[in-house]
Amino acid sequence: MMQIPADISPWLAIPVALLLICGSIITLVGTLGLLRLPHFYQRIHGPAITITFGAGSFLLASMLYFTVLQQRLVIHELLISAFIMLTAPVTAMLLMRTAVYRDLRNGRQRPDTKPEPPAASGQATTAEVKQHRPDGENA
């Protein structure tokens, strides 16, 4: 069913296999973090390892495999990795700001891990309220 050449050399198979195992385990751990962590502000850190390390090792494995298999330089996976490196931070930052903004707008206490937030983060809250209000009115 799978189209793997029967005479594949161990020098190619073993690095590709190691990269794939690493990547898939990290992917699984990242989504496990997404499911298991208790608050949104912690859950947003879980998929970050999926995006960086999991995708990175899969793309590296793909590049290595096709370069050796087709006996020419196949590096167009670099496009996907560059694209992910540029876009994943934007998504994370927008989601984080969305969460902060929505929590402040709903007047909810920031669902932090600590039951009572220390003074520093309390100040951050008021500053962010000031920060966000004019935006909200302009919109």
């Binding site: 970050a48 960086t52 540029l86 994943a88 931070p89």
Partner: peptide, 14 residues
Amino acid sequence: SCLINCTPGTVWVE
């Protein structure tokens, strides 16, 4: 911001 957000464990807020 790209570098900080790419590093797992830190997220840039604003």
